[in-house]
Simulated assay, not measured.
Amino acid sequence: MTAHLTGTREDWLKARLDLLAAEKALTRQSDAVAQRRQALPWVKVDKDYRFVTEAGEAKLVDLFAGRSQLLVYHFMFGPDFSVGCPSCSLIADGFNGIHVHLANHDVTLTAVSLASLDKLFAFKRRMGWTFPWASSATSDFNFDFSASFTEEQERKGVVDYNFRREPQVDWSSNGVVAGLALQSGTTPGDYMRERPGMSAFIREGGAIYHTYSSYARGMDAIWNMYPWLDRAPKGRNEPNGPWWRLRDDYEAPTAMAQSCCA
């Protein structure tokens, strides 16, 4: 017998209609926030950022690939990582299809990381991804857009992430961080010197402008699994924190089924 509230179909429909009103209000609020997001002032990008791509050295303008809008996912993959962050990898698993659609709507979606291009492309091949991915190892791009931090910044307590100053933390004692770092093949300290985020840019009148950035929980909307989990009976169901792994690190479905039914 379930401990959850139960009722008749009529009870469910009445509660569902009440919830629908709240969902519609949330949708309208989301639309209003999107308009405010697009109304933010643009900041001209004057620095000559350089990247390494599959096609060779590139400037920021080259990442647009001829389009007027650029969306950058700041993928946590530092120079000392063996593989990409499992959380960023889960997000990137949703890029393969949508980057093609975006490209046909005047928007280029690319990932950018601080690791070398060799590491990025080895991991990209492993995961079967097709979206563009650039290394920012030759410029300050990651640091300027709050996606990477130095040991000196940590030591001085001047890490500004998600638009606020972070308190100094000993990440080695954080079990969640230690677990994610282990999956990435690095130490907790090195892991937390990289952070997830996204930034938007536009080309207009021969100039490039930074229009938007988002970090931390501001990234929930692009976690492709969360809209589904938020509609599942148990919701996100994460009492012990991150449960996910790299996609090819899970047990094979047949093995899981056998173990469940044994």
Rank of each mutant, 00 (worst) to 15 (best):
T8D: 06
T8C: 07
R9W: 12
R9Q: 12
W12T: 09
L13V: 15
L17K: 15
L17V: 13
L26E: 13
A32Q: 11
A32L: 08
R36E: 02
R37Q: 09
A39K: 02
P41G: 06
W42V: 03
Y49I: 01
E54K: 12
A55T: 13
L60K: 00
V61R: 14
D62S: 10
L63E: 06
Q69F: 11
L70P: 00
M76K: 15
C88I: 08
I91K: 02
G94F: 04
F95N: 00
H99T: 02
H101W: 12
N104M: 08
H105G: 10
L109K: 01
S113H: 05
A115M: 10
L117Y: 05
L120M: 15
L120A: 11
L120G: 05
R125E: 15
R126I: 06
R126W: 07
P132S: 03
W133G: 04
F143V: 13
T150A: 05
T150P: 12
E152L: 09
E154N: 13
K156F: 07
G157W: 01
R165H: 09
V169G: 01
S173K: 15
V176C: 03
V177D: 06
Q183M: 15
S184W: 07
G185R: 05
T186L: 06
P196H: 05
I202E: 08
I202T: 08
Y215L: 04
I222P: 00
N224S: 14
M225P: 09
Y226G: 00
K234N: 12
G241R: 03
W244C: 05
R247A: 11
D249C: 10
M256T: 10
